[in-house]
Design a protein around this nucleic acid. Structure first.
Length: 286
DNA sequence: AGATCGCCCTGCTTGC
DNA sequence: TGCAAGCAGGGCGATC
């Protein structure tokens, strides 16, 4: 379940192993992997051919490879189970290999998009004047972006009639936060997931943002999170951050602060993990 | 326009 | 043993 830190690890891997290489051939093995590319897999491959890859960028959970001198980028989203792997040509095809990109140089590696559940995908889009693929113009800056506007985020929270975890997962308000890091940041901030955002004070918003950044930076420094080996980084190595999680997946285990058994609640077709003592529910919850 | 909900997808786990 | 249901859940389009 790649969120911002995992996607950033992948981006760094691509910068190291794929940037500045010229595409010889892109082969689409499953149409769903390029479903956002309306013209289809054949067209996708042809449009990549012969173009040189620039420095990979990322916003939230999206990352993209600029194609030099085209004004376009290959946009990637890993979804639930997507991986971008740099593999030797001789490595056997992965069971869920969806797209293969070969390059014109003599290096013995190729880029592979592997995705079991096919929630992720690749697509090709025009760039906006900011150098952003046009279809993700609505995605907010992420909390590790130096241009993220804390005050604007606070004002947006005050305006919304919603609850804090919904807001954290709303990629148009703040991007890159998924279910895992939302629960981790809320636990660290001692805030219940159903707390209404309209009553947030500036200090509370700052506290929460600080913990979002801390938990993401901690994960980033450890190479990303991995649970069931569905996610591995660009070199095929698992992350190690799962050992450090304080909330996610810890139902029934003692809170690491106060020892109270952690709880799991069904929430929006997924789960929320929290400490019932450290993270008090708001009086009126709906 | 903001908020909510259903859908997409596959493999593993659980229960009858 | 076999099969069905449950679960993992990000993003997007439809709807109110």
């Amino acid at each position: 379940m790649p969120e911002l830190p995992e996607v950033e690890v992948v981006r760094r891997g691509l910068e190291r192993w794929v940037a500045h290489r010229t595409v010889a051939e892109a082969e689409v093995l499953h149409p769903r992997a390029v479903r956002r590319h309306v013209a289809g897999g054949e067209d996708f491959g042809q449009r990549l051919r012969g173009h040189r890859v620039g420095v990979p960028s990322r916003r939230g959970k999206y990352l993209w490879l600029p194609l030099e001198d085209t004004g376009q980028s290959v946009l990637a989203h890993l979804g639930m189970s997507g991986q971008l792997l740099v593999q030797p040509h001789t490595a056997p095809d992965e069971k869920h290999l969806r797209v293969r990109v070969r390059f014109t140089d003599a290096l013995d590696t190729e880029l592979r998009f592997v995705d079991q559940r096919t929630f992720g995908g690749l697509s090709l889009h025009d760039n906006t004047p900011d150098g952003l693929p046009d279809v993700i113009a609505h995605i907010a800056r992420d909390p590790l972006d130096p241009h993220f506007d804390d005050e604007a985020f606070h004002q947006a929270l005050r305006r919304r009639r919603t609850t804090v975890k919904r807001a954290l997962l709303d990629q148009s308000l703040i991007s890159g936060v998924g279910n895992i890091y939302a629960d981790e940041a809320l636990w660290r901030a001692r805030v219940h997931y159903e707390r209404p955002t309209a009553g947030f004070t500036r200090p509370r918003t700052q506290l929460l943002l600080g913990h979002v950044r801390d938990v993401m930076n901690a994960a980033l420094s450890q190479g990303g999170t991995s649970f069931d080996s569905l996610y591995v980084n660009v070199n095929g190595e698992s992350g190690y951050f799962d050992r450090s999680l304080d909330a996610y997946g810890r139902e029934g285990l003692p809170c690491r602060r106060c020892g109270t058994p952690m709880r799991r609640r069904a929430w929006m077709n997924r789960s929320s993990y929290y400490c019932p003592r450290c993270q008090r529910a708001p009086r009126v919850s709906s």
